[in-house]
């Protein structure tokens, strides 16, 4: 159901006559870190996709769970996909919503904005307000953001065996450059 909405949004966005207001990227970087007493687990993906409609101030970001790498071992990545995030059932994580501040994304500058939207991970959706620093230069929107995700908020269960190795709150960092969509 979510995928359909996502798809429709994207179609709508791309089919929109006012293509001039869309900024996008396919190579956004998203990384996360779990710091516990016994272990530090970190992984990232360079394949985050994002679209911002500068006119409506809406956005969608998504990333395929399988594109995360950099784990401490192949087994860890396997567990990450199979057990924790169940990426067969929920291949993507998305964040979709609207920017609260009324800023003009066409003008150069540095802004702190808050994105109010629905964060969808592991089949569970939560409304979140995520603060980001946005730098606009020469028509490129550069977004830097970090926030925490509580595993329990998204029904991600950690078995007792690895309880000490996985932190219950994961810190996530996002870094993405979005460019205007060219009319081809």
């Amino acid at each position: 159901m979510r995928r359909i909405i996502l798809l429709l949004f994207l179609i709508h966005a791309t089919a929109n006559a006012q293509i001039n207001s869309l900024y996008y990227t396919n190579t956004g970087k998203i990384s996360f870190k779990s710091e516990s007493k016994q272990e530090l687990i970190a992984a990232s993906s360079d394949e985050m996709q994002g679209i911002i409609d500068e006119e409506k101030k809406t956005f969608v970001f998504k990333v395929k769970i399988r594109t995360f790498n950099g784990f401490n071992s192949a087994l860890q990545q396997e567990h990450f996909n199979e057990k924790f995030l169940e990426s067969e059932k929920f291949p993507q994580a998305t964040f979709m919503g609207k920017i609260i501040e009324d800023i003009d994304l066409k003008k150069d500058g540095v802004f702190e904005i808050r994105a109010k939207g629905k964060l969808w991970i592991h089949g569970v959706e939560n409304e979140r307000i995520i603060r980001s620093e946005v730098t606009i230069k020469n028509g490129i929107i550069n977004i830097q953001s970090h926030f925490t995700v509580a595993l329990s908020d998204h029904n991600i269960k950690v078995p007792k065996v690895v309880h000490e190795k996985v932190s219950s709150e994961i810190s996530v960092e996002i870094s993405a450059q979005l460019k205007k969509k060219t009319a081809n």
């Binding site: 609260i100 702190e112 808050r114 979140r128 307000i129 995520i130 603060r131 926030f147 925490t148």
Partner: peptide
């Protein structure tokens, strides 16, 4: 006064 620093930032 204890500082209050929400992750989500403050309203403008």
């Amino acid at each position: 006064i204890s500082s209050y620093n929400p992750q989500e930032g403050f309203p403008k």
